[in-house]
Each structure stands twice: as C-alpha cells, then as structure tokens.
Amino acid sequence: DLSALRVEEVQNVINAMQKILECPICLELIKEPVSTKCDHIFCKFCMLKLLNQKKGPSQCPLCKNDITKRSLQESTRFSQLVEELLKIICAFQLDTGLEYANSYNFAKKENNSPEHLKDEVSIIQSMGYRNRAKRLLQSEPENPSLQETSLSVQLSNLGTVRTLRTKQRIQPQRTSVYIELGSDSSEDTVNKATYCSVGDQELLQITPQGTRDEISLDSAKKAACEFSETDVTNTEHHQPSNNDLNTTEKRAAERHPEKYQGSSVSNLHVEPCGTNTHASSLQHENSSLLLTKDRMNVEKAEF
C-alpha cells in the first residue's frame, strides 16, 4: 500500500496539472479547448457565450486583445492532455480508494470495455495498479461463464418462442383441414349439385314461356288486323247491294208514291245487322237523297 506522504505528493502534482488545464472563465477543466490569436485557451462554450454578448469583436479576458469567431481554432494537443489527466485522476481514485477533492464528473469518461483496460497499462506502473489488474484478471474467467449461461438462457427462450410460433402455425392448418373434411358430406355435395341443376332447368323453362307469350301476342295482333281488313271488305261488298236497293226503291216510288213515303220513313230507323257505323252513315245519306228525289217527283206529278 501507498504511504500517506506519497499520496499527498501525487495529489499535489495532480492539482498543479489541473490548474494549468483549467479554463480562466469557468475555472474547470477545459472541455473542447479553443485557442485565440494571443495563444490563450478557453472552453469553446465559454468563448461563444462571451462573443454573443456583444456585437462585433470582444476582448480576451487575459490580455484584452480583440477576439472574433473566425480567429478561434481548435487545439487537439490540449484536448489530449486533458484526457490523460482524467485517466490519471481515475487511476488515483481506484488505487487509494479516496475521492479526489477537486474531482469532476468523471463517470462519463469511464469505460469498462476490454480495449480501455489494455490502455490503462500505459498509465502508471504502481503496486495498487498491479493489484487491481490481478483482481480484474481473476474476475475475467467468471465473466465468460456468466456470458455462457446468459447465452444458453437466451437460446432456450428463443427455442420456446420458436416452438410456440410453430404450434400457432400448425393449429390453424389443422382446424382448416378439419373444417374441410367435416363441413360438407358427400350427400350434401350431391344435393347441392341437384339443386343447381334444377335451378338451371327452371331458368331454361322460364325463358321459352316468355317467348311463347310474345308469339301469342303477335298472333293476336295479326288476327285483329285481319279482322279489321275483313270488316272493310264487308262494308265494300254491302255498298253495291245498297245501291241495288236504292234503284228498286226509286222504281217503286215512281209507281206508288204514297205507299213509299211511309216505308221510307220506317227504313230510316232500321239498321242492317253486321255493318259498322260507317255503313250506317252512308245509308242515312242515301235515304235522305231518296226522300228529296221522291218529293221532286211528287211535285212534278201535281203540276
């Protein structure tokens, strides 16, 4: 173990290094160091905050020279020094078990990766560091076993998940096959086929009936047209017969005018059967003409 005197000496050296690497504005270890034209180094955030307070150039807090945003430059070497100082402080805390008085939040800088452990060898070769390295080497064999167990647990979990997924996939297939086998029997399929065939026959029977009705309507229309044509021909046949009657009536009127007047009046009210309204109107006109002729003949006879 380190003596108290040596611990104090190391602590004083760390404090001196820390004062050199402090920012003059925030009085902390410089984060993202930036250098000016006057070779003074500050935190990048502190300098941008200072420049944004005034429009135009501002003055350096140490030498009062003008500073602009374009004049600022990043210093990589200074950032490396800060990183190495942080590593020294971490090693000091691990070796002594004491917390550094002016320690900052170094938890963000710590890294437990194997590459980081290899890099620590180049920091300080001390008894405390050696003991700590031995402890780490002793704890390393235990870690692979834990990793193997965790991997086995994960693989077993994956296997159970896969088996569950396969079961879920197989179950719908089985149910679907069961439904297909038990849903419709052979008799049901035959009945469905016969039902479809009967429906098709009914459709075939319905369509000819409609065509037959249309044919019957067409035949009825044709018969009505033929009947009207026969009526017209009958009226045409009746007209010459009426003319013959008129000639006979004229002759009778010349011989017996008194008797014919009474008979002509009675004939006005008689309509021949089986004739249309057109034929009756023609008869009325003929009878009126005959009456006028008879009157003329009677007057001539009187004179």
Rank of each mutant, 00 (worst) to 15 (best):
D1K: 08
L2Y: 15
L2Q: 10
A4Q: 08
L5D: 08
L5E: 14
L5K: 11
R6Q: 13
V7H: 01
E8P: 06
E8Y: 08
E9P: 00
V10R: 00
V10G: 01
V10T: 05
V10M: 02
Q11N: 14
N12I: 00
N15D: 13
N15E: 15
A16H: 05
A16F: 00
M17F: 02
Q18S: 08
Q18T: 12
K19D: 05
I20C: 02
L21F: 15
L21I: 04
E22M: 01
E22K: 03
C23Y: 00
I25E: 00
I25Q: 00
C26G: 00
C26W: 00
C26N: 00
E28I: 00
L29D: 05
L29I: 07
L29A: 07
K31S: 07
K31I: 05
K31H: 12
K31A: 04
K31L: 04
E32C: 03
P33Q: 03
V34K: 00
V34L: 04
V34Y: 01
V34T: 03
S35K: 05
S35G: 04
T36D: 03
K37T: 11
K37R: 05
K37Q: 09
C38R: 00
D39M: 10
H40F: 00
I41Y: 15
I41E: 02
C43A: 00
C43W: 00
K44P: 00
K44Y: 03
L48F: 14
L48I: 10
K49Q: 11
L50V: 12
L50D: 00
L51V: 06
N52D: 12
Q53K: 03
Q53I: 12
K55G: 07
K55A: 09
P57L: 07
P57Y: 01
S58L: 01
L62A: 02
C63G: 00
K64L: 00
D66Q: 11
K69A: 11
R70N: 10
R70F: 14
S71G: 05
S75G: 15
S75D: 15
S75M: 15
F78S: 15
F78I: 15
F78M: 15
F78A: 15
S79G: 15
S79W: 01
S79H: 11
Q80D: 08
V82M: 00
V82T: 10
V82N: 04
E83C: 09
E84T: 04
L86P: 07
L86A: 11
L86Y: 10
K87M: 01
I89G: 06
I89N: 10
C90F: 13
C90N: 15
Q93D: 01
Q93W: 01
L94T: 06
L94P: 00
G97C: 01
E99G: 02
Y100S: 07
Y100N: 10
Y100P: 09
Y104C: 06
Y104D: 07
K109S: 11
E110N: 13
N111T: 07
N112R: 12
S113M: 14
D119E: 02
D119N: 10
S122V: 15
I123Q: 09
I123M: 14
Q125M: 03
Q125L: 02
Q125P: 09
Q125E: 12
Q125V: 02
S126C: 05
S126N: 13
S126D: 12
M127V: 11
G128C: 05
Y129P: 08
Y129Q: 05
R130F: 04
R130A: 10
R130P: 15
N131Y: 10
N131Q: 01
R132L: 06
R132S: 11
A133T: 06
A133E: 00
K134C: 09
K134I: 06
K134G: 05
K134D: 15
L136S: 09
L137S: 13
E140H: 06
E140R: 10
P141M: 07
E142H: 09
E142K: 10
E142Q: 11
N143T: 12
N143F: 14
N143P: 14
N143R: 11
P144Q: 14
P144A: 11
S145D: 14
S145L: 11
S145Y: 06
L146P: 08
E148F: 02
E148P: 11
E148Q: 07
S150C: 09
S150L: 05
S150V: 06
S150H: 02
S150I: 05
L151I: 08
L151R: 13
S152G: 14
V153S: 12
V153T: 15
Q154T: 09
L155T: 14
N157F: 01
N157Y: 03
N157T: 06
L158Y: 10
G159Q: 06
G159Y: 07
T160V: 05
T160F: 03
V161S: 09
R162P: 07
R162L: 00
R165I: 10
R165V: 06
R165F: 10
R165W: 07
T166S: 11
T166D: 12
R169L: 10
Q173K: 04
R174W: 12
T175M: 07
E180K: 15
S183F: 04
D184N: 06
D184E: 07
D184G: 11
S186F: 11
D188R: 04
D188G: 11
V190I: 12
K192M: 13
A193E: 15
T194H: 15
G199V: 11
E202Y: 02
E202P: 10
L203F: 10
Q205H: 09
Q205R: 14
Q205G: 13
I206P: 14
T207G: 12
Q209V: 07
G210A: 09
G210K: 10
R212C: 11
I215K: 06
S216L: 09
L217F: 12
D218H: 05
S219K: 13
S219V: 14
A220L: 15
A220V: 10
K221T: 13
K221E: 08
K222S: 08
K222M: 12
A224G: 14
A224D: 12
C225L: 13
C225R: 06
C225T: 02
E229D: 10
E229Q: 10
T230P: 15
D231Y: 01
D231E: 15
D231I: 10
T233W: 15
N234P: 09
E236K: 13
L245N: 02
T247R: 12
T248I: 03
T248D: 02
T248N: 10
K250P: 14
K250M: 03
K250E: 12
R251F: 14
R251D: 10
R251G: 05
A252T: 06
A253T: 13
A253R: 15
A253E: 12
R255Y: 10
R255N: 12
H256C: 02
H256N: 11
H256F: 14
P257L: 10
P257Q: 05
P257V: 05
E258F: 14
E258V: 10
K259A: 06
K259I: 11
K259E: 11
Q261A: 14
Q261I: 08
Q261P: 07
G262T: 08
S264F: 06
S264W: 13
V265G: 06
V265Q: 13
S266L: 10
S266A: 08
N267Y: 08
H269N: 08
V270A: 08
V270D: 15
V270Q: 15
E271R: 10
E271A: 03
E271G: 04
E271N: 13
P272Q: 05
G274Y: 14
N276T: 01
T277Q: 06
T277E: 01
T277G: 14
A279C: 15
S280L: 14
S280P: 09
S281Y: 07
L282A: 09
Q283S: 08
H284Q: 03
H284S: 03
E285F: 12
E285C: 14
S287L: 11
S288E: 06
L289Y: 13
L290N: 09
R295T: 10
M296R: 09
M296H: 07
N297M: 05
N297V: 15
A301T: 15
